Simulated assay, not measured.
Amino acid sequence: MPIYLYGAWFCYKAFTGKYFPKAYLAGILVFLAYALFLLFDKTGVLSWYKEHEAENIVQSMKATKPWIEETREFGGLLILIIALATNYCVFRKSDGKIL
């Protein structure tokens, strides 16, 4: 949960016109490292894809199998990385001002 709160906070700050390039990069790097861990973990995304034939991960909100939760977390991290990278690129091109 703190992972998503971090991303939400900096998206809110971007909305208010504040720009923190080092915080964006730090978040992107940490979240990318965690996403790679989830990708290659023994109960992670590759396990879900190869060993469990990409079983439906949205059948219920209760994650009964570890690869379901890890795959969902991976997807959430990708969304968060894309959001932070988008904010970073937009603000960098506009010198820290909302376009």
Rank of each mutant, 00 (worst) to 15 (best):
Y24T: 00
P66L: 05
M1Y: 10
A8D: 14
A14Y: 05
Y4G: 13
K13G: 07
L29N: 11
I28D: 04
F15T: 00
K65N: 14
L38E: 06
V58M: 09
L39H: 10
I28P: 02
F40R: 08
F15N: 02
G75I: 09
L36D: 10
L39V: 05
L29I: 11
T16I: 04
K65T: 15
P66H: 03
C89V: 14
A54F: 00
A23S: 05
D41V: 11
Y24K: 00
E51W: 08
I57D: 04
L32T: 08
G17P: 05
F31L: 15
V90Q: 10
K42T: 02
L80E: 02
Q59L: 14
Y6G: 10
L80Q: 07
C89K: 13
Y19W: 08
A14F: 04
Y12T: 01
S47V: 02
E51P: 04
Y88I: 06
T86R: 03
E53L: 15
L99R: 01
K93I: 09
R92T: 13
A85V: 10
K97R: 14
P66M: 07
F37C: 07
I81G: 12
Y6I: 10
A23H: 01
E55L: 09
W48M: 12
F74I: 15
A54L: 09
Y12C: 03
T43E: 14
K22E: 10
A35K: 11
N87S: 09
A23T: 01
N87R: 00
A33E: 09
G75D: 05
E69W: 05
I82R: 05
T71R: 08
A8N: 11
